[in-house]
Structures are given as structure tokens and as C-alpha cells.
Design a protein around this nucleic acid. Sequence first.
DNA 1: CGGCTGGTAACTGTTAACAATCCGCGCGCG
DNA 2: CGCGCGCGGATTGTTAACAGTTACCAGCCG
Lengths: 245, 245
Amino acid sequence: MAPEAAVQSDKNNDVPRLENLTLSQRAHTFLRDEILSNRLPPGTELQEVALSQQLGVSRGPIREALGRLAAEGLVTVRPRRGAVVHSLSSGEFLEAYQVREALEVLAVRLAVPRLGPEGLAELQTVTDTMAAQAASGHVTEFFEANSLFHETFVQLSGNEKLQEVYRRLIGQMRRYWRRSLVLRGDLRRSVSEHRAILRAAREGDAEKAAVLMAEHIRVPQARLQSMTADELLEAEASFDRKVSE
Amino acid sequence: MAPEAAVQSDKNNDVPRLENLTLSQRAHTFLRDEILSNRLPPGTELQEVALSQQLGVSRGPIREALGRLAAEGLVTVRPRRGAVVHSLSSGEFLEAYQVREALEVLAVRLAVPRLGPEGLAELQTVTDTMAAQAASGHVTEFFEANSLFHETFVQLSGNEKLQEVYRRLIGQMRRYWRRSLVLRGDLRRSVSEHRAILRAAREGDAEKAAVLMAEHIRVPQARLQSMTADELLEAEASFDRKVSE
DNA sequence: CGGCTGGTAACTGTTAACAATCCGCGCGCG
DNA sequence: CGCGCGCGGATTGTTAACAGTTACCAGCCG
């Protein structure tokens, strides 16, 4: 199965030429990027005419793109009342975290026995950059490196269906990276947890690595459950203050 | 999030009136049902004109439906070359089984601590009908009851995101229920495994139930991995002979 | 006899116009 | 003053026609 929305691309080119793409594909990836990068934050209304003018195409391709995004969970379309960028309540966020935990534990179990020296090196590199970003207080870059660590495990699992499901889920959660970081708390602890997972993986102890990963992902879950909505908002606000310093 | 492709339905009617649905929604659910019920088996070409005539609508709604089905993984659309019902290779089938195992283990872990008497009764009922169908050799009905058992656990987990991900995955696997049954083998063993899971759940031992569920789902996986493609085909053929008796 | 070429038919991609629905606003009524 | 009513603009849903691409087949050339 092709990685993105079951649309086969050319065998020769991993990244198909722009001119060969259909307009609805271009609209799809454009909107997808806009949403995932938070340039279109949750709750934004997506009007077909405005989008079609912005992209210079008619409404047809836009509608197809919106429909696909809806099926991916990035957009909510209310029949006859327009589409909006889908938003996650804190409850849904917690639910997604639980599913993510299950998927990543599977990824670790599958990946560790298959791990070669290249895979281990890759994980090591990612962990090191993550530690560096944490030390210098670059929270955004830290988050990116952190995400990459987890995604690398999923990739190294060799299970493409798992990758597909995982990426879809992450796509829904990624936009709330601020919330994730707030819940995560201490960056250094996070780094040392990653180091422990990597150590277990290097020893070939899949079960231990899986347990450590599960506990690692459960940290933000636990904090989220012990917080009220107001406390979460306050924490996010103070996070913003700290970052903008 | 609404269960079906992020499309909100009326608050008042759980099953929205046919006349209120948009044509693309009708086309979507129609094609979905046709695919899931195997009336449109994997590999079938889906031509827009033919479908639009069959449903009495123009190609626009059909295209939107196909796009959404593609995003759900039920259809593969090859740009400019038409859409086909998506098919799973035996490798992809195995991958899906692994993901399913992870999801169901999560479901059991979440569901068991929440189980009330009604939930237990529901699981018991389903298990009993499954045993009855197994005893009388009604394989199709057995499979339905079996699926229901698993889906009930997912439902009782209370995690809606999990339900969404699970249902999407099952939708891709369900069409291969013959293959599932062949790999499963002895129906009675399957029933007793379900009974053991239910017993652990009744005792409130989430961990034990989760382990049993994992082992239960791993049975067909193991057989699939130990079989060549030819052996699988032969087994399916002999299964057909047995059923048609 | 096999493979290439050109043409044609079928199909997908896209557009613009039409139809129906929803939303906001002012008006009149109670 | 509050509330329903209806009207008009804006927006979504749908259609039919057009444009471009792909697949297939016949016929020709090697």
C-alpha cells in the first residue's frame, strides 16, 4: 500500500513531479501541510471558494481534498455547513495517547530483534541531538528530535501497516505539541528515558525496551489525568511565557 | 468524533434519514457496504460512469466517495487509471494482524477494570452463541459471533479513538474472513480461549486477560508465518470444499 | 511472425453554472 | 422589549460539458 492515502505514485520517482500530480492531490497535500504545521489551527473554517481562489483551482478538487482529509481525521465536515480543522478535546487527546502507547510498544517489540548496527546508530544520533536541544533549551527542536526518535522505532519495526496507522494518529496529535511538552515536563528526564530504551534495545532485550517505552509514553498521560482543564490552560500559558523569553 | 469518516450526523437521529444525506454520503456508505460484504471483492475495478449510472447520480459524488474510501484504505486509486477495491497480500494481512493484536490488548487492559455486570453478561452471551455456532458447524455465523466478541471488548474499553482505529483496521481485514478461519483452525479451541479470557476478565485480572488475548490473536499469525503461499491457497480450497458440503 | 505506430474509444480530471440550504438581519407582531 | 418571520446574500451540493490521458486494436514495417 502506498504511504499517503492509498494513492499510488510513480515507481521511479519517490517524490512525484508536481506537474504530474492531479489538482486534488496538490490541494490535499497543501491543506495537509498547512494543518499539520499549525498554520491552520484547529477550529479554522475552511471555505471552498476561498481555498479554490487561493490555490487557483475550481471547487471540485478542493472538495475531494477536504473529503479525504475528513476521512483521515484532520478535518470535520458538517454537511451543508462547511468544513473546519478538526480539534481534539483533552479527553480525546488522552485517548489518542493510549492508542499511541499500544502502537509504539508493538513497534519496539518488532524492531528490537531486527535491529542492525545502522538502526542502532540512527537511534543513537537522534538521541544525541535530542539531548543537545534539551540542554540548550530549544524546545521546538527538542520536540522534533523526540518525535523522530519514536517514528524511527516505528519505521524500524518493518511493519508498514503499523507505520500507516501510527502516522495517521501522530498527524492528529502533532498539532498539540505544546500541550505534549507541557505534560512531559522535565526534558532531561525524557532524554534519560530515551537513553534507557536505547540501552535495552542495544542489549537485544525487546521486552525490557517495550516496558520502558510504555512507561515513557505513560508519563504525560498520568499528568493529564491528574490535571483539571484549568490547570492545563494555566500550565500552557506559563509555558508560552517561558518560551518567549 | 463521529464514527463514520468524521461526518457529523444529526443529534436527534442516530441513523440519519436517507433523504437528508448528501449524495456523496450515500455513495460512500453504499460502496463501503458493498466492499465490506465482499459483493465487490478485492481487485474489482470501480469505474465512475458505471457507478454513477448504477446509483443514479453524477460522477461528482462518486469521485468524492472514492476519495474518502481511498483515505480509509478500502480502495486504491491509481491517478488517471481508475480505482480498484484494495486487496491485502498475505504479508500485509500478517502486518494487520500484529496491529490488531496491539489494539485489542489495549482494549482488554482498559475494559476489564471498567467492566460492570452488564458488560460481563454481554460478553457471556456472545461467547455462548459462538460456542453454539461452533458446535453446529455454522462457520459464517461463528465468525460473526467471534468478531462481535472482540469488538465488544473494544467498545467496553470506553476509548473512542481506539474504536475508530480498530474499526478501520477490521474493515480492511474482515473481507478476508475465510483466510482468518482457515488460519484459526480448530473452532473449539478458539471458543475455550475466549472462555479463558472471559474468566480472567470476570476475576478482574486485566493483565492475565490481556496476555490471553495476545496469545489468542497470535495463533493465526503463527500459522500464517509457517505456511507458504501455496499451502495457504490449498488450505483455503479445502476449506471451501468442507463448507459447501 | 513479432514489434512498433497511429488512431480511436473509453475513461478520468477539471471546470463553470445551476440548485438547494443555511445564516444573519431587519421587520413586524404580540 | 422579546420573539418569530421572511428575505437576501453567502455557501455548499450537484450536474453536465469539456479537456486531457490512458488503453486497446488494427495495420504496417522489419
